[in-house]
Amino acid sequence: MNIFRLAGDMSHLFSILLLLLKIHTIKSCAGVSLKTQELYALVFATRYLDIFTGYISLYNTLMKMFFLWSSFTIVWYMRYHNVVRRSYDKDQDTFRHYFLILPCFILALLVHEKFTFLEVLWTFSLYLEAVAILPQLVLLQRTRNVDNLTGHYVFFLGAYRSFYILNWIYRYFTEQNYYKWITWISGLVQTALYADFFYYYVKSWRNSERLQLPA
């Protein structure tokens, strides 16, 4: 564990806590894409199957359990909670997320480290995570006016990805034989998707005004 990976994990944890806080206390999920949240739940469900087969550390196991629990809790809130579900922008959140799942799965069947059940699902989760933010970004672009919590949520998700890139660079130079092409490339794609959002986020922060995205 190095400082970049810890900072990345903490940003990830913090982003989810922000989202849960918003949903739980304000009882609103306005501006949050259910499609993206469902994709994340699928990402964690397929990636963390190794929770049953291997042990790395208590930290690792607890984080995995948190990510699994929180992603399904958020989906549950948005779909079934009496108050929260009414604030969901269903008509705006129209990205066809099913179209992301199949290509990612086919790609995982073709490009992977090892052709085993867990390994293919793990690879699928990496590809899917890379594009899972797309419905959220499309929703932000559509609604344009982004409330603070949703903006911070996406910002910290992007920070998590950026720290992971620094972590890979650090590990590449400090560990022997550490190279993970699949993880790196899908991670880079994922981080690149945030670039546009980051630009407007930092701009609004510097002008200390509300985040507004161009149409």
Binding site: D9, I56, K64, E113, W122, E175
Partner: peptide, 10 residues
């Protein structure tokens, strides 16, 4: 140390 087939990142 990264063992083959073990993913230690989250």
């Amino acid at each position: 140390i990264d063992v083959e087939g073990v993913h230690d990142e989250l």
